[in-house]
Write a protein that binds this DNA or RNA. Structure first.
Length: 492
DNA sequence: TGAAATGTTGGGGCG
DNA sequence: ACGCCCCAACATTTC
């Protein structure tokens, strides 16, 4: 006997390797549903990711159509909407893949018990991570707080193989009204800040294609080239992963297979790439054991760090007008395409926290709103990592010199020229230090410092000293500290 | 998944 | 030929 089920989609916008969808399809016909629920208990998606969500939902809907299923769109509190649908249809079973942030876990639990009280059968599946949430643990049954031992334990464990698209996908025979997602306010309304986002193709097909291209063309040499923002050398799978258009275990096994094919030649590049999945996993793991990670420094001694609140500095950083080309190029890339190269993320984050002494959570909030790949665990764990307040973090005194970083990782200034057109005509020798260019060189390049391009807002050497002295004021005490709330909303 | 300050070494200019 | 100094190059330490 076949039971028709609802399958609730959230951050798992794919047909393949989808545990909930597969489990439901094994029981009978399926009605897939996406509910746009700006639940106050769960941090809602930033503006940039809403753009991605819109396009990803269209893609998912199309993919379901190919299998003869209609993806239902609804808006409102998830429980209320599900109740209505259940009352209207009499469907008695709901499947979904569990979330893995603490707030999603709690909200899943509430939803689960509320549905059960209504006599609805629920089935929650594990999905979206390589490992079971909260695993592995140390031999003494502690949680890991250092990446390397965590990673060693993780990579040795059995990572499940991905499963395909369910073969026996059949549509439930109910007519359910569906919203038009154009009414959800997912796309920019005023000025269209998402024009540059057209470089992306959201959706499961595009994600699979992107992975294939990466493994056939870019994995070779990845370990080194990944640090070069002037080269297109990274996988750029992060937004696909964030929305669940592809799973880490699909990437894991496809990468191992590609390494296998090359008989070991790509092992070091391949493991470097897989370790990046390891960092994603480690972030989710840390957030699980430290639910305050988004709001509080992981290391207690940072609770009394003398952060500065300087709105004009923050705004200058956000707009990419700090006067340091590598910083400004990164911030403008973020604004224009909703994504920033990993190396540059570290440089701009270090600059905000250290040169400008701004609380890491201000930067985290900006990234959250502007990144298409925003992920609560990765975003907060990595900001804390750069700030020095996180688990297994870079030491606070490791302060990037934005000039040297620019010269080292963008030696010809291609990246700077791409995102800061007003510097495009400046010669290589001063592309990362325009204030050192001769008046004649500036004139030839049509640059007026302080006008067409800003002078540096802080002097690096001075700011570095200031940061180190701020660091030295931290005490070892474990002051419980305040939970942080950012001062500025992003562009939403 | 740094950078700057400080220390050490060794070749070469020079008296 | 020798010692002295300078300083680039590299190494170590410190932040």
């Amino acid at each position: 006997m076949a039971t028709t089920s609802l399958v609730l989609f959230r951050s798992d916008l794919r047909l393949s390797d989808n545990s909930a969808l597969t489990a439901a399809a094994q029981q009978g016909p399926v009605i897939p549903i996406y509910i746009f629920d700006e639940n106050s208990l769960v941090r809602s998606r930033g503006a940039a990711q809403k753009w991605w969500l819109y396009h990803s939902l269209l893609a998912l809907s199309k993919d379901f159509k190919k299998h003869g299923l209609n993806l239902v769109f609804k808006r409102g509190p998830t429980l209320t909407v599900l109740k209505q649908v259940v009352q209207q249809t009499g469907i008695g079973t709901v499947f979904w893949n569990k979330g893995f942030t603490p707030e999603q876990v709690n909200s899943d639990k509430e939803l689960d018990s509320s549905l059960q009280k209504l006599g609805i059968t629920t089935s929650l599946c594990d999905d979206g991570l390589l490992s079971k949430l909260g695993q592995p643990r140390t031999q003494q049954n502690n949680d890991y707080t250092v990446f390397t031992p965590y990673w060693n334990a993780l990579k040795l464990s059995q990572i499940p193989y991905p499963i395909g698209v369910p073969q026996d996908l059949k549509s439930g025979k109910y007519k359910i009204d569906s919203d038009s997602i154009g009414d959800w306010g997912l796309l920019p309304t005023g000025p269209d800040w998402a024009k540059g986002f057209s470089v992306w193709t959201p959706g499961e097909d595009a994600a699979r294609h992107q992975l294939g291209q990466f493994l056939s063309q870019k994995i070779d040499g990845y370990a080194h080239a990944r640090d070069r923002p002037d080269k297109n050398a990274t996988s750029q799978l992060s937004p696909h992963l964030a929305l669940g258009e592809i799973t880490p275990r699909q990437i894991w096994h496809a990468t191992l297979a590609a390494m296998e094919t090359e008989g070991g030649r790509l092992d070091s590049d391949g493991w470097k790439f897989l370790s990046e999945l390891g960092w994603r996993e480690f972030s989710a793991y840390l957030l699980h054991y430290f639910p305050n990670l988004p709001k509080q420094s992981f290391r207690p001694r940072f609770h009394n760090f003398p952060w500065k609140k300087d709105l004009s500095h923050l705004t200058t950083w956000q707009k990419g007008r700090t006067g340091y080309p590598i910083i400004d190029a990164g911030m403008r890339q973020l604004w224009h395409i909703g994504w920033m190269h990993n190396r540059v993320r570290m440089i701009v984050a270090s600059f905000l926290c250290k040169q400008l002494l701004t609380h890491w959570a201000e930067g985290e909030a900006w990234f959250w709103d502007t990144l298409v790949d925003a992920d609560l665990a990765s975003n907060t764990a990595n900001w804390q990592w750069v700030a020095g307040s996180g688990a297994d973090a870079a030491p606070y005194f490791r302060i990037f010199n934005p000039i040297l970083q620019g010269q080292k990782f963008d030696p010809q200034g291609h990246y700077v020229r791409q995102w800061i057109p007003e510097l495009a005509q400046l010669e290589n020798s001063v592309i990362h230090t325009p204030w050192q260019a001769t008046p004649a060189a500036l004139k030839a390049a049509k640059i007026t410092l302080g006008k067409t391009y800003p002078l540096p807002i802080v002097d690096h050497a001075q700011a570095r000293k200031r940061a180190l002295s701020a660091y030295s004021t931290m005490t070892k005490g474990d002051d419980p500290g305040q939970l942080f709330s950012p001062t500025v909303k992003g562009n939403s």
